[in-house]
Design a binder for these strands. Structure first.
Length: 271
DNA sequence: ATCCTGGCTT
DNA sequence: AAGCCTGGAT
């Protein structure tokens, strides 16, 4: 672990630059108009590895359909998945649905208390837990996503191999107390609008494999078919024109994850 | 071809 | 530590 502590003066200059940019370029996003912890929770799930521009319409439709934790928790999984389709990483729909059930059943519907015990909530890791506390409650804690990581590396001229631990130490040093929500929103905007990955050449921490021709693409097509009606592996194979061995491998994995169910020969979207 | 407010499993 | 998970925009 190397000492990467900037001086007090460096930090203050950095903060002023970020806040000045925010003042002039702030994005007007739907989930920034609320501090409802459930709504923040949904937005954070949707935003995991997914661009803001693609989330906006899904978020808006979602809140019209399910405005509270409980309304989502008691909904059928099929309807939840149907509303998610097109956003990508469809496991998140199941995680989100199951997470709201745990929040209602074990935490009396109290999102902010629940996310502090995020090990019990599928789909919520350290980043998302902190992000929800920050954006819903203005909690005086720091979190680092792909945007914020890129800003720190560029701003303080760090090596791209810097550890999460060192990044987090730096993030805490830079956090202006009492302004956590504004600060993190400002950092996100600075990273997404100005200090982009393309512009800086700084690669994201987690690389994604190609989509065309991938198993992921086939999984998405499988779910779309199963949302219409239950189908056998043979019917799916005819529709998708994938080698049967590859298809059954994918189907087995999806059954294993419980993203699809199987009764006798037929596959279906779980209830 | 590469990116996107990560998390889970092995 | 590394592979896997969706789909659209640039």
């Amino acid at each position: 672990m190397t000492d990467i502590s900037p001086s007090e003066k460096d930090i203050r200059t950095f903060q002023q630059k970020i806040f000045q940019f925010y003042k002039e370029n702030k994005r007007d996003l739907p989930w920034r108009k609320t501090t409802d912890s459930y709504k923040i929770l949904v937005s954070e799930f949707m935003l995991q590895q997914t661009q803001v521009s693609r989330v906006i319409e899904y978020y808006t439709r979602w809140m019209n359909a399910w405005p509270t934790v409980k309304s989502l928790a008691i909904e059928s999984y099929k309807k939840v998945l149907n509303a998610w389709m097109g956003l990508g990483y469809n496991r998140r729909a199941m995680y989100l649905h199951n997470t709201t059930k745990v929040i209602v059943d074990e935490f009396h519907g109290d999102v902010l208390t629940a996310v502090k015990h995020y090990e019990k909530l599928p789909g919520i890791g350290l980043y998302t837990s902190k992000a929800i506390q920050i954006f819903a409650d203005n909690a005086d804690i720091a979190t680092v996503d792909t945007n914020i990581r890129r800003i720190f590396i560029s701003e303080f001229d760090l090596d791209e191999s810097i550890s999460d631990k060192d990044l987090f130490t730096l993030a805490k040093q830079c956090l202006p107390s009492g302004k956590s929500r504004d600060w993190h929103n400002a950092l996100m905007d600075y990273g997404a609008l100005h200090l982009t990955s393309r512009k800086t050449g700084i690669k994201p921490k987690t690389q994604q494999s190609n989509f065309q021709g991938s198993d992921r693409q086939i999984r998405g097509r499988i779910l779309r078919l199963l949302l219409k009606e239950d189908q056998s592996a043979y019917q799916l194979q005819k529709e998708l024109k994938v080698e049967s061995e590859r298809l059954s491998k994918i189907l087995n994995k999806m059954v294993d994850e419980k993203t699809v169910g199987k009764t006798n020969k037929n596959y279906h979207v779980p209830h």
